[in-house]
Each structure stands twice: as C-alpha cells, then as structure tokens.
Lab assay of single mutants.
Amino acid sequence: MTTFKLIINGKTLKGEITIEAVDAAEAEKIFKQYANDNGIDGEWTYDDATKTFTVTE
C-alpha cells in the first residue's frame, strides 16, 4: 500500500485527506468519490513525485 494525499481547494471546503491505496488509480477513484459526495466539482491535478492529488474549484 502507498500513501496518497488529496488537497482540497474548494469554494466552501478546504483541507487535506490522506489515504492508503494500492496505486494512484485506486486513490483517484476514492478521492473523486469523496469529492462527489461532498459536492466538490473542480479541476484535478496529480503529482506522482509527491503522490498528491489536488482539486480546485
């Protein structure tokens, strides 16, 4: 398992979430479901060097 981080730069929600996932594809699926569940819709980026996803509304 690898640790992945999501940085949320939303209009109403900001913060960071860290999860353990098998790979970046699994982490992205989990993070996008979390964002969808919380009404966050924005532009996604991923930095493989730091294993960090960012979503900006």
Rank of each mutant, 00 (worst) to 15 (best):
T56I: 06
K51N: 09
V22G: 06
E16D: 03
T2F: 11
T52K: 07
T3C: 02
D48Y: 05
I40R: 02
L13R: 06
M1A: 06
Y46G: 00
T45R: 10
E26K: 10
N9Y: 08
K51W: 08
Y34Q: 02
F31N: 00
I8C: 03
A35L: 10
F53Y: 15
N38R: 15
T18V: 09
Y34S: 15
F4Y: 11
K11F: 06
T12F: 07
T18A: 13
L6F: 11
Y34C: 01
E57W: 13
K14D: 05
V22C: 03
I30A: 04
I30G: 04
D37V: 11
Y46K: 12
F53G: 00
K5D: 05
T12E: 02
T52M: 10
K32W: 09
A35C: 02
A49G: 07
I19C: 01
I19F: 11
T3F: 15
D47H: 08
K32Y: 06
A35W: 03
E16P: 07
T45C: 04
A49F: 10
A49L: 14
T52E: 03
E20G: 04
T12S: 10
T2N: 15
K51P: 01
E28Q: 08
K29G: 04
K11W: 05
E16T: 15
I17L: 08
T56W: 05
D41P: 12
E16W: 08
E16V: 06
D48N: 06
T50A: 15
K51M: 07
I8A: 08
D47S: 08
K11R: 04
D23W: 04
T45F: 08
A35S: 11
M1P: 15
K51Y: 09
G10D: 11
A27T: 02
W44K: 00
G42D: 02
A27Y: 00
A49W: 04
D37N: 15
K32G: 03
E28F: 14
K51R: 07
I7M: 11
I19R: 01
E28N: 10
T45K: 11
N9W: 11
E43F: 03
T52A: 10
V55M: 12
G15H: 10
T54P: 00
T2Q: 10
E26S: 13
K29E: 02
G42Y: 03
T18F: 06
A21Q: 02
D47R: 12
I7S: 05
V22L: 06
E26F: 10
A27F: 00
Q33A: 12
D37P: 02
E20C: 03
A27K: 00
Y46S: 03
K32H: 11
E20M: 05
I40E: 03
G15T: 08
G15L: 14
I17K: 12
N9A: 05
L6V: 04
I7P: 00
K32E: 15
L6K: 00
E16Q: 12
N38G: 04
F31I: 12
G15R: 15
I8T: 06
I30V: 13
K11A: 04
K32I: 04
D48E: 07
V55C: 01
V55P: 00
Y34F: 06
D37K: 15
E16Y: 12
K5W: 15
K29D: 08
T50P: 04
D41I: 10
G39L: 06
V22T: 07
E16F: 03
T45Y: 03
K11D: 10
I30Y: 10
A25R: 05
K32S: 11
E43P: 08
